[in-house]
Design a protein around this nucleic acid. Structure first.
Length: 430
RNA sequence: GCGGUAGUGGUGAAGUGGUUAACACAUCGGUUUGUGGGUCCGACACGCGUGGGUUCGAUUCCCACCUACCGCCCCA
């Protein structure tokens, strides 16, 4: 094989693409119900947009970003996630301006890029769909976003969903907690895993997330963020919990849950699904949180925000493992069978006329025999076949056959061309 | 970036250091003249991921690379 697709990329073939369309259509419909509108931002941005928001010492920025210098010596990066670009666009286009209703609610669907080792449901080019809402600190907005995420996944037929909830508090709370956590872990420094040793001062919250047994033993008794929330943060978190309950949405609080990105504050959440398809037990399918400092970080006015992202490939793996059926619309109304070369112009005209009238129609292009054409019609699951041969050309009548019943009648070309719908209702509707 | 497993036609796969690489499915053609989902017959890898090497000879042995999958790291 001469050429092959780049490592970690995938060709989405027509059959598969139908599933993608279903997912995208469903998502758009739901987002629309919640009054979120699509925003399309570039697939690459200035490197700084991402390094600024993700923390430039992080592995993410140094190891996993597809960054490059373009011919004008600009340092660019393929977007590794959706939020940073949307925030940049929010600021650049002044969506914070008074003429825009607050909160500004947007969603995006598209490819993202990460330089990492491919595995099932994890590729270098992958797709995410996500939402962002700017301009309100109200806990009710947190809950709307969470509810929308749950709603979306339920629409995709996923059961056994679990909502994990945590808060990181505001900056003061987080700083206080961070200090306490370092104080707690430092005496055990030598007993931590190598990774956690480096994490301890760079990003101590991540130690909580460690899967290493050596770390877990300390994490168990580590101080909890929940004990370091100031009044404001506590109030916000309580309100979120209470509103979730009002909506009848169950949740479990996981004080050790942290996010990979530095910019989160207050509410963070993950929606997990129970499936063996993506590893044992519950795995995260949708994750998000509040990022009240992010807009400012990128040079905009102080503006709160909240959003979530969802991996489409992972979603597909889950749906398939769960046995969710994709309602696929692939109907062929009529297949036009032409017998003999002389019928070529007529069959083409008829297929075209059918399409003009809103029917899906197809014909043979390989000069095959009638039998083969009928076989094709059958395999394509055509509802009707329209047969034209020399005799039909002379009489200007075609044979219309309902494939399921086998009933066949003779109909003038004109009727077929002008109103095939009438032909069907007049002759085949019993 | 590290470790493990694998790579034969459109698909699922069998197989061997040596003339024509099983079998099945799919596809296409035929089964007497213009009608489908059946039967029967036939066709279908210039080649066994790529590139080297060993050998009289390699798809089969060795090495490197590529890719996929699994695990680690990480996870926006």
């Amino acid at each position: 094989m001469r050429y092959q697709r780049p490592k970690g990329t995938a060709d989405i073939l027509p059959e598969e693409a139908k599933k993608w369309q279903y997912i995208e259509d469903t998502a758009r419909m739901i987002f629309d119900n919640y009054r979120y509108h699509e925003i399309r931002t570039p697939m690459f941005e200035s490197f700084d947009v991402f390094s600024r928001t993700s923390g430039d010492t992080s592995d993410i920025v140094t190891k996993e970003m597809y960054d490059f210098m373009d011919k004008g010596d600009r340092h660019l990066s393929l977007r590794p996630e959706g939020t940073a670009g949307v925030v940049r666009a929010f600021i650049e286009n002044k969506l914070y301006g008074p003429e825009h209703q607050k909160p500004v609610k947007v969603y995006y669907i598209g490819p993202m890029f990460r330089y990492e080792r491919p595995q099932s449901g994890r590729q270098r080019e992958f797709h995410q769909l996500g939402v962002e809402a700017f301009g309100s600190e109200e806990p009710a907005l947190d809950v709307e976003v969470i509810a929308m995420g749950m709603d979306l996944l339920r629409h995709f037929g996923l059961k056994d969903l679990r909502l994990a909830l945590n808060t990181l508090g505001d900056k003061e709370s987080r700083d206080a907690y961070r200090k306490a956590l370092i104080e707690y872990l430092e005496p055990h420094y030598d007993e931590l895993s190598d990774d956690s040793k480096t994490r301890l001062h760079k990003n101590p919250l991540r130690v909580l997330d460690s899967k290493d047994k050596r770390d877990k033993k300390f994490v168990k008794d580590a101080p909890s963020i929940l004990d370091y929330l100031d009044e404001e943060s506590q109030k916000h978190f309580d309100a979120v919990k209470s509103l979730l309950s009002d909506l009848g949405i169950d949740y479990t609080i996981d004080p050790t849950m942290v996010r990979g990105l530095d910019y989160y504050s207050h509410t963070i959440f993950e929606i997990m699904a129970d499936s063996k398809a993506l590893g044992e037990g519950y795995t995260t399918i949708c994750a998000g949180g509040r990022y009240d400092g992010l807009v400012e970080e990128l040079g905009g006015p102080q503006t709160p925000g909240i959003g979530f992202g969802l991996g489409v490939e992972r979603l597909l793996v889950l749906m398939e493992a769960t046995g969710v059926s994709f309602p696929v619309l692939d109907q062929l109304d009529a297949y036009v069978v032409g017998i003999g070369e002389d019928t070529n112009p007529t069959t083409l005209k008829i297929v075209q006329a059918l399409r003009d009238n809103g029917f899906s129609a197809d014909r043979d292009y390989l000069d095959r025999k009638p039998k083969a054409q009928f076989k094709a019609a059958d395999r394509l699951n055509a509802q009707y076949t329209i047969t034209i041969g020399d005799e039909e050309l002379k009489s200007k009548q075609a044979h219309v056959k309902e494939m399921e019943s086998g009933k066949e009648i003779s109909v003038p070309f004109d009727e077929i061309i002008h109103d095939f719908n009438d032909v069907i209702t007049d002759h085949f509707n019993d």
